[in-house]
């Protein structure tokens, strides 16, 4: 009893210290705010990156190098999960999880109605990433959820993870190649490969292709994670 009391009291003290630090830091941040970067991005993003959504302009043009590594983290995570989960034998017993006892009829029918709309919504978010909020990652996650709902519709489905990983790797390599074309055309790494004096609507082609590649890569990765979790055999 005494031990647990000491634990609880020390936890509360630590949390209180964190709260005080947070409040002090918030006041400091309000004092030292500067508008320089905000004003710069507001003025120049449309001209320099041809993207109306400033967030997309930053992560697909100014900071493209960072987003490539961000894409690679997901690939590494997927390959790690596939390495750890033992799915050598392709067992397709997803019936166990999406059981008739557990999944009701309402859920299965609703998901079969929702499936095409989810696909269209995900593709819309991916392809309009430079105009509206969203982009490759968000749209890819929505596409992945759309594909995952098909497990409710037809539990006996089998997805071969081997080819999915292969496609994801090819997409990642294509991402790097597309983003380094600019070395030839504009003599700098990791920016838009279409020269800056071209029409804005032509230059968005680069953003759309990159968003599409990132979206497909993310959705394949998430489907991979899910299916390898599903097939994981517990051998005790």
């Amino acid at each position: 009893m005494v031990k647990t009391m000491i634990k609880k009291i020390s936890l509360i003290i630590i949390l209180a210290i964190f709260l005080i630090i947070f409040i002090i830091l918030q006041n400091d941040l309000l004092l030292n705010q500067s508008d320089l970067s905000r004003l710069y991005f507001l003025q120049n993003t449309l001209n320099e990156t041809s993207s109306e959504n400033i967030v997309t302009g930053i992560y697909l043009d100014y900071r493209l190098f960072d987003s490539i590594f961000e894409a690679s983290t997901l690939l590494i995570a997927v390959s790690g999960i596939i390495f750890i989960t033992r799915n050598y034998e392709y067992t397709t017993d997803t019936f166990f999880i999406f059981d008739k006892h557990k999944a009701s009829n309402i859920l299965t029918h609703l998901s079969s109605i929702l499936f095409p709309f989810l696909l269209v919504f995900g593709l819309y978010i991916i392809t309009h990433g430079h105009l509206t909020p969203g982009g490759g990652f968000q749209g890819g996650a929505i596409l992945a959820t759309a594909v995952l709902t098909t497990y409710y519709i037809n539990p006996g489905r089998a997805i071969n993870t081997k080819y999915l990983v292969l496609i994801e790797k090819i997409l990642f390599i294509a991402l790097i190649l597309i983003s380094s074309i600019s070395l030839i055309t504009r003599n700098t790494f990791f920016t838009n490969f279409i020269p800056i004096d071209k029409n804005n609507s032509h230059r968005t082609l680069f953003l759309i292709t990159l968003n599409l590649f990132i979206g497909l890569k993310v959705s394949f990765g998430l489907i991979n994670i899910f299916t390898s979790f599903l097939r994981e055999e517990s051998k005790l």
Partner: peptide
């Protein structure tokens, strides 16, 4: 809104599915 979209898709759709899967395993 960009972060909100990512949070909705990952946090409230894929993550619970993975957890439910892990429990029913």
């Amino acid at each position: 809104p960009d972060v909100a979209l990512a949070e909705v898709a990952i946090g409230s759709a894929i993550m619970p599915l993975l957890y439910i899967l892990a429990i029913s395993k």
